[in-house]
Amino acid sequence: MFIFLKLIGALILSCFSWADPIKPIPQQIEYDLKKALIGRELFFDPILSRDRNISCATCHDPEQGGTVHLRFSPKVSDDLKANVPTVFNAVFNFRQFWNGRAKDLYEQAAVPILNPDEMGLTKEEVERRVNKSDKYKKMFKEVYGIDYITFEHVIDAIVEFEKALITPNSRFDRYLRGEIDLTESEKEGYALFKKLGCITCHNGINIGGNSFQKFGVVNPYKWEPYFPDRYKITGREEDKNVYKVPSLRNVAITYPYFHDGSASTLEEAVKKMAYHQLGITLTDEEVTKIVDFLKSLTGEMPAILKR
């Protein structure tokens, strides 16, 4: 009976598993370096905030994995609190924000700048500020051939920079490419990752970031009205606690976890996931293995930041 069931399970798995549910991050991505360098300048420049005290990098700190190690974004409102998603590899996400309300980086990049609760500028103010700067005027003139910098140009440059923020050559990617072998623990962790079904949501190049899924499928997760979920957009009851699956790339350095930053360690996050999504409690051994696997997903610092 036991053998019989095990055989069935293996058969089902083998029937429906697919060769490459996860793809490595490419070494290079197509982007305009000259524009990206302007974008880098802007990304770290606090003139894009009302009080000139924060920049994009304040919340998307490359030193902190492209995010910030806080539960919530430092700039939040009462009706919207969210953990800061990493800017690293964001280009590979099918939509942006926890609830995917921006269809791409262009839509996303403008939001925090114009959000009164965040950087709090208007398009006109952004244009006024950058056009007053000889540095930007010169750079934009050189690269874009323009005399007046519009808000769209500013966003374009920032997006070009964000495109460059990819983290290739993680141990796992190199394993996928057959360059190195993972440790037994890491490999077993990956096997568990697949076997337990984590991979049904965390798949693709970003190991996530390509579908909306409910947090608390089996065992419901508490819901707060300020959560940045799909419900905020659709208003459908079933969309409560439905989020864009976050990428697991560099997950080891992007703590704390979940939309509400409620898990501060990987172990905690893995355990919570197992409980809410599968309804099981993992053994410590299983958790360790999965965490080991997750740690192998940390890639290299984006090349453009090393320049």
Partner: peptide, 8 residues
């Protein structure tokens, strides 16, 4: 159909 499907 496929269990380990990649949505990308």
């Amino acid at each position: 159909l496929i269990l380990y499907y990649n949505y990308d």
